[in-house]
Structures are given as structure tokens and as C-alpha cells.
Design a protein around this nucleic acid. Structure first.
Lengths: 209, 209
DNA sequence: GGTGTAATGTGTAGGTATTAACAGGATATT
DNA sequence: AATATCCTGTTAATACCTACACATTACACC
């Protein structure tokens, strides 16, 4: 069982390795990576070795190899059929973000309950009525549902997605959803993040005194 | 010095206490809170006692009092003058989100470099050219800058904000910004979150076998 | 007003996570 | 081919975080 602390670091490793790859860097040592990312070299080596021995003594790590291995570990070596529910401001932003930074989560269905939105298209995907959600998910073997509806409807939408058989939910509503533990859940709590910022500002100001 | 683990839990306490308050609940015990939030009762008591003794033995915690104390701890008992840079999809979504869930971060300036956007208004705030950013921040005593520009311009914008004297930055660009440690930084890495989801899905599927 | 009960505050133990230290293997250089 | 250097993999130590357990205090009820 991989610890949560490591899981949270993996995407960051991936991010930097992707950058290095784009820059054409071939090899990197844990020390160099440390200077770049900010984790200690020791931690970096520990993290990698929880999975496998990716490096070579006296040489370092091959950027290409490490990058592709981390992609495999993260499960980014495949496509995820995805739907998004709630095409408001946030939903549209996520749709376009996802379209722009293409990373294997293909949004092939958009759903909303607002009649004004239904029928419109974003990036060639038609917005359907949310009543069609469950059938669509079942028929198309959807893997992931993105929830961008408000606080009050989020659990309901999550239940639909779970019933229809998705394996993961990416949630932007500001509540903690209840899903069976066979379904992966990852929530982005924007307000929590903002409040953390407020706390940091306050702490900084106090330490100035 | 408050540990990072606690800081990350504080907004969550706040979220649940706000909910309880809206429901008219007056008092709550650490056990009841535990059942609700999912942290152990012991941890909840420990967390609160790092700050002060908020509870009363034999009674529990007053929801109203605890909520207001946590708000103070988080620095949410004041207003933050805020600007947002990069009024693309994400920027607009955040602007409206913020407007909707009002929490003391008042966006009074919007900035972009796209001539098509400059001059438009969102929630009565005019979008200005990014060249006016620094002066605006200085003249209006802006506390917080929200960065919603792309990867390539984010650091540049951050530098401007820092130069102009903000005390905090909320960053949505997918890079780790460099700011002096007098400036609070909180980043929302959407792709990191999505990759974490991918990992969880993969792990779930493997455990099924 | 006395007594039982509920629930906090806190000292301590146990468990995780991070950092440090070093042994050993691979590379490069002469 | 021998040797010095580099850098990993891994063990050991430290620091941090979480959970347990219980003494203590306030409340409520008779």
C-alpha cells in the first residue's frame, strides 16, 4: 500500500520530468532534482524506490525512462472516457482546460439541467439533459465523471454516476461526497485552498511584528 | 508554529461548522463531529487545543463560538482586496465563483492582455490591460492576486504582483512559482489532482484482481 | 445540594514519514 | 586495467503526527 504522502508527490515529479524532457535533458541525479523540485534528495530516492530501482549508481536517472515509469504508476498510460456534469462557469473552464492540456481524460459527454444550455456544443460535444446521464454512462462505458454542479445537487449526481458504473469521480462541489470505496474520489475544494491562503497571509503578517 | 497537517484540516472544520450553523445546531461534541467529518474525536480535540480551550467539559463545543474562532484563526474575519489576472475560462469561472460564494476576497480589479477582453465587465468590474496592473495594485492597496494566466506568463505576473506589494498569491497556473517568503503562496494544481485520481482508479482496479 | 454522567483537555505511547549516513556498484579517466 | 569519483539503494535515526487512555471538570437531574 502506497502512502498518501507519496501519492501527492508523484504528479509533481511527473510535472518536472515532463519539463526536463521538453528541454531535452537526458539524465538527472537525485541532487539535481532536489534543487529543482525542493524535496530532499534522500526523499526523492526513497520515493522512487518504493516502486522500483529506476536509477543507476554513478549515473543517475534517465529522464525519459523515469517519466514513462511515473506515467505508468499514475495510470496515465491509457485513456479515460469522461463525462462532465454541470456546464456552468466552472464546468466550461474545466472542459476547455482539459481540452487544452490534453492528458488522457477525454470528455465525450456534457450534461446540465439548464434548458438554455442543453443543445449547445463545446469543443464539438453537445450538452445533454442530465436525465440522460445514467444511460449515456452505461452505454458508452464511461470511466470518469466530473462534477461541477452546486453544493445541493452534487451528491445526487454522484449517486447517478456511481449507479451507472464509473470508476472515478473528480468533484468540484464544496462538499465531501459519499461514494463506495470501489469508486475513486478526488475533490478540488477551492474554498479550502483559499482559506489556507488566508491563514498563511495572517501568519506571515503576525511574524512580521 | 502550527503544523501543516493541522492547517489543511482547519478549512474543513470550518466547512462543517458552517453547515451545522445553517442547520441551527447549537452544540456539538468531538464524537459527533468525528462521525460527521471523519477525523478521530481525539484528533479533533488535539487540533482545537493547539489554539485554545474552546470547549467545555461535560457539554461540548458551542457551534457558533467555535465557528467564529476558526474564522479568526484562518484570518477570515477581515476583507482582502483582490485582483485577478488572466480572464480566460478559468479566470471567469473563479471570478464568478468568488462572487457567488462571497468569502471576503473582493475582486476589485481584473486584468488581461487580450485586446478583445479589455474593456468588458464582469460583475461590474472592468477588465484592464495588464500593463496597468502594478500601478493599480499599489494605488489601491491590494492584498491578494489571483493568477489565471497560462504556464508561460505566470512567473512574470507573479513578479509584478510581488513588486507591487501584495501579501498573498492564489495561483492556478500549472507551475511552482518563486516568491519571497514574505508573500504567501497557495497553488491549485488541477492536473496534479487529476493525476491523483488516475492513480486511485488504477489502484482500485488492481486490488479487484 | 449531592451524585452520576458526559465530554473535554492532556500526557503518553504508537505509528508514519522524513532526513541523515553510508556501503557498494557503475562510470569515467588516465 | 586500475583507481578515483559519482550517485544510487538502503539501513538507521530523528522528527512528526495520530490515537489511546484517563484524570478532571462542568452540567443535569433527583
Amino acid at each position: 500500500m502506497i502512502s498518501n504522502a507519496i501519492i501527492r508527490r508523484l504528479p509533481r515529479y511527473r510535472r518536472y520530468l515532463g519539463q526536463l524532457q521538453r528541454q531535452g535533458v537526458q539524465k538527472i541525479s537525485s541532487n539535481e532534482l532536489s534543487a529543482l523540485i525542493g524535496f530532499t534528495a534522500s526523499q526523492i530516492r526513497q520515493d522512487f524506490n518504493t516502486f522500483d530501482n529506476f536509477g543507476q549508481q554513478g549515473y543517475g536517472y534517465s529522464v525519459d525512462y523515469l517519466y514513462s515509469e511515473i506515467n505508468k504508476i499514475l495510470g496515465l498510460d491509457r485513456e479515460y472516457k469522461t463525462v462532465l456534469v454541470g456546464v456552468g462557469n466552472m464546468g466550461q473552464a474545466i472542459t476547455n482546460y482539459n481540452y487544452y492540456y490534453k492528458v488522457g481524460f477525454n470528455i465525450i459527454g456534457l450534461f446540465d439541467s439548464n434548458p438554455k444550455l442543453i443543445g449547445n456544443t463545446i469543443n464539438d460535444v453537445v450538452i445533454k439533459d442530465v436525465s440522460e446521464l445514467e444511460d449515456f454512462v452505461k452505454e458508452n462505458g464511461i470511466d470518469v465523471g466530473i462534477i461541477c454542479v452546486g453544493r445541493n445537487n452534487a451528491q445526487e449526481v454522484a449517486d447517478m454516476l456511481v449507479n451507472a458504473g464509473v470508476s472515478g469521480i473528480w468533484n468540484f462541489a464544496p462538499i465531501d461526497l459519499e461514494v463506495p470505496d470501489t469508486v475513486a474520489l478526488e475533490s478540488v475544494h477551492l474554498s479550502d485552498s483559499l482559506h489556507t491562503l488566508a491563514f498563511k497571509i495572517k501568519t506571515n503578517e503576525e511574524s512580521k511584528k
